[in-house]
Design a binder for these strands. Structure first.
Lengths: 177, 177
DNA sequence: TAGGAATAATTCATTAATGAAATATTAAAA
DNA sequence: TTTTAATATTTCATTAATGAATTATTCCTA
């Protein structure tokens, strides 16, 4: 997992952990006519960034016995009206499959960070709500997450951040907007 | 998992699956002074995009009994000199933990798509190599992956793709370059 | 308003991914 | 050159995530 792991093999002195990947993508481009280099590179970059931010956040959250997924669930509730959400909304918000949402909520419930009760308007639904303890928890670890995010994205200006986000956002609007 | 799942609850008529998330991030910004909205939004967007491309590629790869992770492993070998890589290089290239790389390679081996033998220069190491069958397999499913990637990123111009990639790449060079 | 289709959440069995420890080998230090 | 440290991979036990099927409720329509 270290940038120097494979020094002197396929790559000479190299710049960072992703340049080897880029090099492999370029080779592939040479071998496969029609290979969409830019698409492949972005796809791979997204995967790498996702892993990076997950790992870094996990490290920060470990002392709280939380991880990136449970943390995200809490934050989505924190940002909802009445700190309230249904499992399917939470599934959409986090990208976790409904079946996993059930498990995640079992865990948060066990920790007393959320509560869960049947909806009154629609009795198929379930209501998930952040408890007071859950809110305190969120407010406690947030600053550390901010530091972590800053370590990752701190070199990008606000303008650049908006630019990336604007562009990266487009596929989502295209596909289901 | 559908954009209409939670119609008429917390969101009014909405644009796409991500705008609810953005709205929650804005609420959070209001509740938590100091909350780095742009960082949080980009982080969340990356997670969503990663899930999206994983799901879409998995659908394409299902007929070949492969998934996004095993596919990535094959592609990284395809793009390497001699179609050859060590497990630790593969771990770096894919972002999978070494222990998972072992499992993945067991599977690819069982399918005859790669071969595995001890390195002669350094007997701690192991050499993984794409077989002829593996190469054929790659070349067979590639066009379908291209179509999938195009569905996702096709609305971005080459210039825009390079722009996103350039910006998104910076954190990786900063952190370990 | 009865009956079938759709939606929401969950359970259960299975697969995927991880961390900690073990093994083997090489590199570095004393 | 022996000892110690570092690297590479794997094994094993545990946790996390998924898909398929199930249950309960609501929506729709004939």
């Amino acid at each position: 997992m270290n940038r120097d792991d494979d020094l002197g093999r396929h790559s000479g002195g190299h710049e960072d952990s992703f340049s080897d990947v880029e090099h492999r993508i370029e080779i592939t481009r040479q071998r496969l006519p029609g290979y969409p280099l830019e698409h492949a590179r972005l796809a791979r970059l997204i995967t790498h960034m996702q892993k990076l931010q997950t790992d870094i956040c996990n490290a920060v959250l470990k002392p709280y016995e939380l991880n990136y997924v449970t943390y995200t669930a809490l934050m989505m509730m924190y940002g909802s009206e009445e700190q309230t959400l249904t499992p399917s909304e939470l599934s959409n918000a986090t990208g976790e499959k409904p079946t996993n949402v059930t498990r995640i909520c079992d865990e948060l419930l066990r920790k007393g960070l959320i509560e869960r009760y049947p909806s009154v308007e629609d009795r198929r639904r379930v209501v998930l709500r952040l408890t007071a303890q859950g809110e305190r928890q969120v407010e406690q670890f947030q600053p550390k997450i901010w530091k972590a995010l800053d370590k990752i994205y701190g070199q990008l200006s606000q303008a650049e951040l908006r630019q990336v986000t604007g562009l990266l956002r487009r596929p989502l609007s295209n596909l289901d907007g």
